[in-house]
Nucleic acid binder design. Structure first.
Length: 429
DNA sequence: TCTGGGGATATATCTAAAAC
DNA sequence: GTTTTAGATATATCCCCAGA
């Protein structure tokens, strides 16, 4: 049901595809690789500055659209807003660059158009190429008929969706900062030994005594222990014969390293697939309680997450179920702080793997229990804040994804959608 | 500049050997 | 006998670049 003022036009008449953009060879410029784009995320995650040799070229306001399998299917599409006004950047050759046409389309509307399921499906269906390396056919996209609202309406739609994405980005920023604070506190207390003493003064600089240990000077009363002393170290498992009936969409959450590579959240509820009771029984995986720290131990060593509820993992993890008086946060930070050391103890030729035995043996400085207790009180709210922000992001994503196709097709109009968004934001605040 | 083939590397999966 | 470790192999992902 589209409004009469909406017009059916060919994409190429509304949007420039791979527009000519000038950047001289050898110029230093920002470079956005495929891995700098996250799945279904508007914001470009990172970039490097390097000499331009070849690749796609773009400016602020452009949309980068992955054209190769599986990046496109996985939702690698981003909006460029990391540049100065006249700055030109470049990136992977596997991007199609979309640019709004002056007076015809709005740049953010173009972004939301390209992430709408309808548009993505057309792109995905058009893909051809040798197996495993399918690419979008540009001319199919160019000739796709889209239902284009008047410019003002485009701006309203884009603005509304942007409000949601802005909030998601804000929450992500906030969480990044909170995580940095959490790390800084850990560093200050347990690496610099400036934890507050009984009088609330920083221990070391107010004359707290340090004594010799095999890990250098440490506060009196502390000791050198191992990661194995922090809790039980448990390996994961995969059912020996991969049988479909061992997996389900609503069983016991089963986490694999891949679930963490796509998901930078600190807390995890479930992975992309669950395991059945039967499957769990037929593997060496165990049920891990809420608060267990998951540490990927094979191939990508060092992905970290905290179980938000009971979960299991595949064999790519060693998990630490923290002792009661140590607590999740301390274990999480110890593993994070020692990531490189742990990786250096890994063995294996095809790829590195840290064995449970080796992981347990990694030496660490263990504070007095009362200090850990105070630490846990000090950082508890940080963890809670991060967790809440992550929850809020999830609900924002779900409202964005439900509104987007309806707004793009004209099924609902901006004022009605606005009300839904406001309700959602209100609830989360 | 555009298009698509294919190399390089990272990661997942399967499963056998080693360790318990 | 069961669990853990890790090699072989398959797949996923990203990048480079030749030829039109």
């Amino acid at each position: 049901m589209s409004c009469s003022k909406w017009k059916e036009v060919k994409l190429i008449d509304a949007v420039e595809m791979n527009p000519r953009t000038i950047l001289k060879k050898g110029t230093l410029a920002k470079k956005v690789s495929m891995q700098d784009i996250a799945e279904f995320t508007r914001k470009i995650q990172s970039y490097e500055i390097t000499e331009f040799t070849s690749g796609s070229k773009f400016k602020n306001g452009d949309t980068l659209f992955a054209r190769i399998t599986p990046c496109l299917e996985n939702g690698k599409t981003a909006y460029v807003d990391i540049l100065e006004d006249d700055e030109v950047a470049f990136g992977s050759t596997e991007f199609i660059v979309f640019r709004a046409k002056e007076g015809i389309t709005d740049s953010k509307f173009v972004y939301y158009l390209t992430i709408s399921p309808e548009f993505r499906n057309i792109a995905i269906k058009s893909m051809t190429g040798s197996s495993g390396r399918q690419r979008v056919q540009n001319d199919v996209l160019a000739n796709t008929i889209i239902n284009l609202p008047p410019l003002q309406e485009q701006k309203r739609i884009a603005h509304l969706l942007s409000v949601i994405d802005d909030k998601i980005e804000l929450n992500n920023e906030m969480n990044k900062m909170l995580e940095e604070i959490a790390q800084a506190i850990f560093q200050r207390w347990f690496v610099d030994f400036e934890f507050p003493n009984e009088n609330g003064e920083p221990y070391k600089s107010s004359g707290g005594k340090l004594v010799e240990s095999e890990l250098g000077m440490i506060p009196e009363g502390w000791k050198v222990a191992t990661i194995g002393d922090l809790g039980s170290v448990v390996g994961g498992g995969t059912p020996s014969k991969k049988r479909e009936d061992y997996f389900t969409s609503n069983g016991i959450p089963w986490i694999t390293p891949k679930d963490l590579s796509n998901n930078k959240n600190r807390y995890i509820e479930r992975g992309s697939i669950d395991i059945t009771e039967e499957g769990l029984k037929n593997s060496s995986a165990k049920l891990l309680p809420k608060g267990t720290v998951l540490f990927s131990s094979r191939a990508p060593i060092g992905y970290l997450a905290i179980a938000k509820n009971d979960v299991t993992t595949n064999q790519g993890f060693k998990s630490v179920i923290p002792h009661k008086d140590i607590g999740t946060e301390f274990v999480f930070q110890v593993l994070k702080y020692n990531r490189e050391l742990i990786e250096s103890r890994a063995s294996g030729t095809t790829f590195k793997e840290i064995s449970g035995g080796e992981l347990k043996k990694i030496p660490i400085v263990l504070p007095k229990i009362e200090v850990i207790k105070r630490y846990n009180e000090a950082v508890k709210s940080l963890g809670d804040l991060i967790c809440n922000n992550e929850e809020e992001i999830k609900s924002l994503i779900s409202i964005r994804d439900s509104l987007l196709p309806k707004l793009m097709s004209g099924e609902i109009r901006v004022p009605d959608a606005e009300r839904e968004v406001e309700e959602c934001l209100q609830k989360s605040n």
